[in-house]
Amino acid sequence: MSESTEKKMVRLRSSDGEVFEVEESVAKVAKTLQDMLEEDCADAVIPITCVRAPILTKVIDYCKDQVMISSSSSTTNNPNERTEQERKAWGQKFMEGVDSSTLCELLVASNFLNIEGLLNLGVDKMVSMIQGKYPQEIRDMFNVVNDFTPEEEEEIRNQNAWAFERDPYYKKRSSSK
């Protein structure tokens, strides 16, 4: 990043101590950092106390991309400009291969740094992960403890038998009876 010499740089420190140097415009995608920078609260290294380095890398990637889009969209007929569809596809690609624990950390980070776009991407990803899954799969994915009593669970299943029709876990249980 040699062209950024005349640009103001901001240094961010992740929770595990790694320091990232980014352009101010990139950092400003995060509203939290923007507020800080505007109030001149951030003279030295800004500690991002709740975000680990790998997550912060991902967040910075996102911010960089946002800067690229916004700087290019000001000029007309730009090849970088994206349609709604392309943006969706880009978001999907960005979130591809993100597992549930990374996703959680990413959500926490984007919430803390107040990056609306990334938060929405994360929420969409989360929804697509939950959607169409059976309860046991969801529990396994997010380490949620099943605290229903067997009776309660049975009742829920009976009430909505249709939804569980193809649940392998359900079939196993009902056939073992």
Partner: peptide
């Protein structure tokens, strides 16, 4: 709701789940 995720954000995710998916999601935990 989801370990490692503040309630607010987890709730926000669940809010975005379409209605027909809620039946299964509702039986994940109390």
């Amino acid at each position: 709701l989801i370990p490692g995720l503040p309630y607010e954000i987890a709730e926000q995710c669940l809010v975005h789940l379409p209605f027909p998916c809620q039946t299964l999601a509702r039986s994940v935990s109390r």
